[in-house]
Amino acid sequence: MPETTTDTSSNGFEPRIVAFFCNWCTYLAADLAGTSRMKYAPNARVIRVMCSGRVDPQFVLEALANGADGVLIGGCHPGDCHYQEGNYKALRRFKLLQRMVADLGVEEERLRLEWISAAEADRVRVVMDEMTDQLRRLGPFRHEEAVMAIAAQQPQEVPV
């Protein structure tokens, strides 16, 4: 398993979360949480994409295969996508992805999709804390097994 920098806490397991936030809603909500000086768990690393519809299921698998204990996708509320319906595409992919990773034995708490508007800074805080907490309780993701399984099952057809 590759060495990571996040696992610094000595008194317990600190999960690593990779988050994909859309540029127009959830990323801005996270910015607003910052400007509002809200405090939340430092476990997630946010990757900015223009729209949740950009999130390729392979991104999620890649994160899980490389040390993430959970993956969070954040987009605009249904009907609010800056590009009209990217988030519906994201939702469809997410449903398929959930089924797929469940087949691989991955606990469902490890994947999360949230609609958070640019104004809902507090929702970012709550979701970050909740997910971190859940993953803490769940324990580390068994990357080695998953890597094997994912490698074996690398989807040929990406769900759309």
């Binding site: 920098t5 996040t6 610094t8 806490s9 600190e14 996270a30 910015d31 949480a33 910052g34 400007t35 000086r37 809200m38 405090k39 939340y40 430092p42 690393r45 946010v46 805080r125």
Partner: peptide
């Protein structure tokens, strides 16, 4: 800043996150 120093108190964790 918005995703780091302004939302985290724990220097060690916040610094680790910034490095990542």
């Amino acid at each position: 800043r918005e995703h780091g120093s302004w939302v985290h108190d724990d220097v060690e964790m916040a610094t680790a996150k910034a490095k990542d």
